[in-house]
Amino acid sequence: MNESINPEYTNALVAASHESEPSRLKHYVIGFISSLVLTLCAYLITYYHAGNRGLLLGLLAVLALIQFLVQLFFFLHVGREFSPRFKLMMTTFMILVVIILVGGSLWIMHSLNGRVMPSTKQKEQYMNAQDNL
């Protein structure tokens, strides 16, 4: 009967239920406060237009990414499970999909914009031709 239980697993389970209370509350508080600070930083640098535009955009992107990781870890508990870490794998895969989807769309549409869209001069010519008809 006793062999049917993997002692390591049981220990891990017991440890997990004990680990819970104070350390988990701490996690939520850390997550909340750092998200708050990151949000306010992003807001303030935008509101006061501190620095030039390119720098600001980069800074905002970095702040958003940090907050994303903070919330993923402290609120959604990604990466804090026992192996096999299916949740982490699923999340990493989805981040890859999102990067391909958004990055790919922007790349294609930007490229098409340069190649296929007529310039302002071409548009005027076209409009004039339409008027003559």
């Binding site: 807001y43 535009r53 994303f68 919330q71 609120f75 959604l76």
Partner: peptide, 26 residues
């Protein structure tokens, strides 16, 4: 709670990309 935290994560990007980038005339 997963669902609710997830929606907050999505909002980080809406806040940054739609509103903050929008305010900077991207």
């Amino acid at each position: 709670s997963l669902f609710w935290h997830f929606l907050d994560v999505v909002w980080i990007f809406i806040f940054t990309i739609v509103y903050l980038f929008g305010a900077l005339h991207v």
